[in-house]
Write a protein that binds this DNA or RNA. Structure first.
Length: 395
RNA sequence: GCAGGGGUGGUCGAGUGGUUAAAGGCACCGGGCUGUAAACCCGGCGGGCUUCACUGCCCUACGUAGGUUCAAAUCCUACCCCCUGCA
């Protein structure tokens, strides 16, 4: 029994269009999931994420960050992450595994787990598969992730293998701890019966993560042994962490089609609009990435003609919208000149508008990807999308 | 009018004889950002020429005009302007 009730409805070569049924709504795939590390997608309100214009069906939260602040006690006392934040659609929580990599010097890895020096106050914290599962159970997202170790892209075979083995052992422990946590939470009904309907008491789901850096044999082995543990879905981790694009695509092309066809396939942390489309073409169903939000905050717009740096002086008098082919509310109303002025002035609205547009562009692109797969036009869409992207902004 | 303080690059502001084309901030210009230690980080920022490049050379510049000195944003003289206090 798959609680996600994932179905593939249409395919075109390796590309797939499907539906993911969660206790908090249906998610059509391929899907882009905005990143909301701390329980908020930075720079945008939930109303806008839920609006027909953006219509984000699922967002991320982060175990490590929420565990440090506000902490599991607060989240539990406030009835889980959904009640706490007011986001009523689906969520996926990352396990903190990525922080094992990104926090670099602030952490120390052992068999048991990872010691982190908190980036907030410097205190020493210990995160393990068991703790991550316990925290993720308290957060209560529809999809939880196994606690993994992410290796840098240029990891040698030796390093990648050791890391992969550790991730496999952690996956086993994640799975075991997850089952325990689910049994506990199902046996003791939630405190706030009024808001939590029966349908929400369904168990969470857990995804396993494939590692192995750029070594295809390790990737395949990681895949095989992770699948043997039987997760609800599978993710490709450890990409876009320093390896070159070609290597990344090589791994995706080799691994995605070998992933179980009846389970969702999630490419973690990727990527640019062109990355998404290329990965969909290789069989990936789910994505998350900080690019639309982070780059929006830092002055970059993603457009159908490529990247636009709103800081550039050449936009000072530009009366055009960020993207002339975009129908989002920002592009319908505001000029590049105005948004540049806001950015130069340090106005928070600049970041808000750029974030909104970028998310609209990412989410709309994925919508068109889904439609094109369903109508058998994905190859054409992919070609045209890529061509337009390569036209550049100046023509 | 008298007494004191001060005039530095787009701007604020260090510097008080050579290591100063002149610290630092801001502004400006450009780049980066891929499971968010990120509303952040990095670089450039007088002009001209030279080398593929590390570089090298020349010109202009510290209120104005003179002067002292091998050497001046820094010392001296005069003038102009600004600020504070007293008349």
């Amino acid at each position: 029994m798959n609680p996600l009730n994932f179905e593939v409805n249409a395919t075109e070569d390796e590309a797939r269009a499907g539906t993911l049924n969660t206790r908090r709504g249906v998610i059509e795939t391929p899907v882009f999931m905005p990143v909301g590390t701390l329980g908020t997608v930075k720079g945008i309100r939930f109303e806008e994420l839920e609006s027909p214009e953006l219509d984000a069906r699922i967002i991320l939260g982060n175990t490590y960050h929420l565990w440090l602040r506000p902490g599991i006690k607060t989240i539990k006392a406030c009835g889980g992450l959904h009640n706490f934040t007011g986001w009523n659609r689906a969520m996926l929580t990352d396990s903190g595994g990525f922080q094992v990599w990104s926090l670099g010097a602030l952490r120390k890895i052992s068999e048991e787990g990872t010691e982190f020096r908190s980036h907030i106050d410097g205190s020493l914290r210990f995160l393990s598969p068991e703790i991550s599962m316990e925290v993720q159970a308290a957060l209560g997202a529809e999809i939880a992730m196994a606690f993994d170790e992410c290796e840098p892209g240029e990891a040698t075979r030796e390093e990648a293998q050791q890391s992969m083995e550790l991730t496999l052992r952690w996956a086993q422990r994640s799975k075991a701890a997850f089952e325990v946590a689910q049994a506990v939470s199902l046996r003791s009904p939630s405190q706030d019966k009024e808001t939590q309907t029966d349908s929400l008491r369904y168990r969470q789901t857990l995804f396993g993560i494939i590692q192995g850096a750029s070594h295809l044999d390790l990737r395949r082995e990681s895949l095989e042994r992770t699948v043997a543990m039987d997760f609800d879905g599978y993710a490709i981790g450890g990409l876009s962490v320093g390896e070159d694009k070609h290597t990344m695509m090589e791994v995706i092309e080799d691994i995605a089609p070998r992933m179980p066809a009846r389970k969702p396939r999630y490419l973690m942390g990727v990527g640019t609009p062109e990355d998404l489309i290329e990965a969909v073409a290789r069989g990936v169903d789910m994505f998350d990435c900080v690019l639309p939000t982070r780059n929006g905050r830092t002055g970059q717009a993603f457009t159908s003609r490529g990247k636009l740096n709103i800081k550039n002086a050449r936009y000072a008098l530009d009366q055009r919208p960020l993207d002339e082919n975009c129908a989002c509310s920002v592009c319908r109303r505001h000029t590049r000149a105005f948004i540049r002025h806001l950015y130069q002035s340090g106005e928070m609205l600049a970041s808000i508008l750029l974030t909104h547009h970028n998310l609209a562009f990412f989410l709309d692109t994925m919508k068109r990807v889904r439609q094109s797969i369903r109508s058998g036009q994905f190859a054409k869409f992919r070609r045209e999308f890529t061509e337009q992207l390569n036209c550049g902004l100046e023509s």
